[in-house]
Amino acid sequence: MDATLSGRQAGTGLIAARKPTGRVSDPIFVGILWTSGIVVLLLLGLIIAMLFEGGLPAIQEFGLSFIWSTTWNPVTEVFGAGVMVFGTVFSAVIAVIIALPLSFGIAFFLTEIAPGPLRRPIGVAIQLLAAIPSIIYGMWGFFIVVPLMAAYVQPPLIEWLGPLPIIGALFQGPPLGAGMLTAGLIMAIMILPFITAMFVEVLESVPPMIKESAYGVGATTYEVYRNVSVPYGRTAMVGAIMLGLGRALGETMAVTFVIGNATRMSASLFAPGATIASTIANEFPEASIGSLKLQALLELGFILFVISFIVLALSRLLVRSRLKG
């Protein structure tokens, strides 16, 4: 009795909820969904606005030349972002240059060479590199990689390549271990899984027909990879590289451990340096609320946000355009 009654009530409830237009929708639930979407949308705007507002006094104090001025002197309270902007871009580019050939090779291995049953486990293992927290890379880099670089990698490079004209400038200075190259190397391992995963996704979307046509006229596996698959996915692959670059630009903890944290500019790969993120992490504890230094650090954060936003937006544009077309 009860059951039939409640069933009937539920039935009338459903009919009552139906709008005369015949559209079945409910404003409250749809409202919640839309609100959450808008919240995420506003979040980005709010982040940009807060960082901009926080750093505004520094821009007013030093003018736009803050962005390229290379003086960073907390004692005299003169600040400029030049050294950090250079360090951020330099170390990220090193990371991409190292990660790129590795990603091309590993993607080739995973899509063309590896036997079927091995592809997934090896792919997953490489993806686990992306799951390891940044601070762990920092510790591993600081305690393991830095001493190895100082003892075995940098001295021979300085001896052999340092005296060369032009490119010699990249390989000069004392072998400290910590520095730009070490930071780039560690970040290369960190961004490698991201670039590789997107490469594999793009390469797997290449229509088998056009690859088979190339095989049909006698091309080798490598020739098909180089002349058919990679050109086919070129746009999205550039997007993948940009994503790696974007990740490297904002990397903080790993870099802070291994870059040496010196606010000087040097062309050498072995010189200690600083990135925007490492400077913020390092100098923030010494900056009090309302101080010019804090404002300069917030302005650094704003600059980093703008740089990574442009790179990430570009990356997404390239990847999506390919996936649509």
Partner: peptide, 21 residues
């Protein structure tokens, strides 16, 4: 689009943002 950017945005800036906020 915004979500994709947030997914890869430097996490230290999230810290700075919440500090300000």
């Amino acid at each position: 689009f915004v979500n994709d950017v947030l997914l890869s945005a430097p996490s230290i800036l999230i810290g700075l943002f919440v500090y300000q906020l």
